[in-house]
Amino acid sequence: MKHRTFFWFILPTALSMLVFIAMPIVSVVTQSVYTPHEAVLVETESCGPFGCSKETVIDQAATKSLREAEPLGRFVGLEIYLDRGHLAVDEVAQAWRDSEGISEFISELNNLPFYRAMGFTLTYTFTVAPLMLLLGFLIAVSVNRLNRYLKGLVIFFSLLPMIVSPLIGSLVLFWMVDSRGILGTFLQWVAGDPDLSVKASTSLTWVMLIVYGVWHAAPFSFIVFYAGLQTLPGDLLESAQIDGANRWQRTWHIVVPHLLPLVTFVALIQLMDNFRVFEPIVGFNSEAHATSLSWFIFNDLGGETRLLSSASATSVLTIIGVAILLAPVLVRTWRDYQRKG
């Protein structure tokens, strides 16, 4: 294809990505090193019958005009990144000096909002991925043995948890697990504790969010593995059977290696997507016990005063995190490309 033709074909999509993805990234990076102007203070002297007193008041007009003239605010460099709401360098150094052991240090870190959000995001990302792979694999192997009519039915219902909006999915589970809901009541009965409330406990909240994550993501790995099972080398299985391999040996030595490339694919996509966990935090109303980096950004932006600088700094840190998780995918794509020439 000629460069010229290519250009016109690619123009709409490239332009939309340039304006609404690339430029916002630049804008986010810029905003993260600026902070709004402080209010302009003026000192006025007010004199009354009992003498004069000086007082400092905010010059509303001057503040407004300054903020309008420079909406970005003043340049502060990396200050926002290092403040208490983000990397909290001073607090971390302090905690490192003061704490006796590594566990005390970690619990100190947990008091800092950014590290708490980071802690949950990473825990969520790295527990949901293996669990959803396992559950998806088990469902795929089981469903593969059903007859054709039942397969369609199971696939139909399996798609539901994955396809609904994460907010809706988490709300549906949240209402059931509420202490007055059906699952909540069931758990109270199992635990023998009528006051048990999942949303009041930090560890149970984490478990609930991870269960939601697996529930939401397992259909994806199920479908992918199920498709992979349809291309199993039949003659290989047959000859293994003739050679006396039992069911488990065949599963372990033929089925699992056959699906392994799909496992990497699903795992890489999952790591990337789970890192942005956000809607479940809103749906489960769990910000007292578990927050994530994305929720952090949303919370900064959603308040009465939009904390653009703070949100931008968190965004940049999140993007760095995504980039680290993305690196293996990029390497893989590069290798594929080299192989194909």
């Binding site: 690619i10 490239a14 990505m17 609404f20 993805i21 690339a22 430029m23 916002p24 990234i25 630049v26 804008s27 986010v28 905003q31 909406p71 970005l72 990337m272 890192f275 942005r276 956000f278 994305s294 950004i297 949303f298 900064d300 932006l301 939009r306 653009l308 949100a311 931008s312 965004s315 940049v316 999140t318 993007i319 995504v322 980039a323 998780l325 993305l326 995918v329 990029l330 794509t333 590069w334």
Partner: peptide
């Protein structure tokens, strides 16, 4: 171009929102 698209695909949308508002 495809690699760039892949990188963009990985961006959580909420990280871009701060860039849109102003």
């Amino acid at each position: 171009l495809l690699i760039t698209a892949l990188i963009f695909r990985a961006m959580p949308p909420v990280t871009l929102v701060a860039g849109y508002l102003l």
